[in-house]
Design a protein around this nucleic acid. Structure first.
Lengths: 128, 128
DNA sequence: TAATGTCACTTGCAATAAGCAAGTGATTCT
DNA sequence: AGAATCACTTGCTTATTGCAAGTGACATTA
């Protein structure tokens, strides 16, 4: 996990955000987590067809960056379920705005469920 | 410019948005355009130090995707200034949410000018 | 006038990352 | 015992990035 601001190409908050999540896959995983998916196979089965090695490395990076946490959901062999942290859940407004934008400009893309725009980051945090 | 929905890896609006602008540089250019920059050299001089070949190819892609337009600002040799289209200006809420998120979670990143959060997409369209 | 400079790129190439297919290990199911 | 499942990892090919240098059209300076 990057800790020092000096590690970033600039201190601009937009640029830093892009260094952390500015790629074609990270937010797809965050979307799936928002939709309640939590297991490796769940992410793999999304329609975008993320390659398995990329999925593994993105989950690792998201965890390193404090966006995701994992917890064992079974033993022998130990397997982990992934969840959004508060930091990760707070990406929801970003996702929502991206969806609003695409809905406005890209014909024939899917309309997400009404609930997607009503959910708040709080709602996404697993109750412990 | 991608026209058919079938060209995308899925019809999910989030995924499509990421295919269009999900990389480390495109939104940095959009940010610069929001700040009133318009010439090639302006983008080059931003603190992130975008490589010149990437800048040229991103400007081309952004234009192909209808996010920016270019207009000649001089002859001999003809040189172009770049501007946000309405589609591009409507990315502002996305940028704003990304900035809110980074400000909340990344210590020591810069605070954008107050005006950044007050501007609307309309304000970004050049008056003709 | 010749040389130097500026601006907006393009080109070549090495390094990095993405994507595909196959393999692995632990365990359960047949 | 053999086949299947799940969550990965490994190997390898292809695509993208990033760095450095080059190019072309003109303006400026010596």
């Amino acid at each position: 996990m990057k800790k020092k601001t000096e590690d970033y190409r600039s201190k601009c908050p937009l640029s830093i955000a892009l260094e952390l999540i500015g790629d074609k896959w990270s937010l797809v995983i965050v979307r799936d987590l928002c939709m309640g998916k939590s297991k490796y196979g769940d992410f793999q089965s999304s329609p975008e067809g993320i390659p398995t090695n990329i999925l593994a490395s993105r989950l690792r990076e998201l965890e390193e960056n404090g966006i995701v946490t994992k917890e064992p959901y079974q033993d022998k062999p130990t397997r982990y379920a992934y969840f959004l942290t508060e930091k990760g859940a707070d990406l929801l407004p970003v996702l929502q705005q991206l969806v609003v934008w695409t809905q406005k400009y890209v014909l024939d893309c899917l309309t997400p469920p009404e609930s997607f725009f009503q959910v708040t980051p709080q709602d996404l945090l697993r109750k412990r």
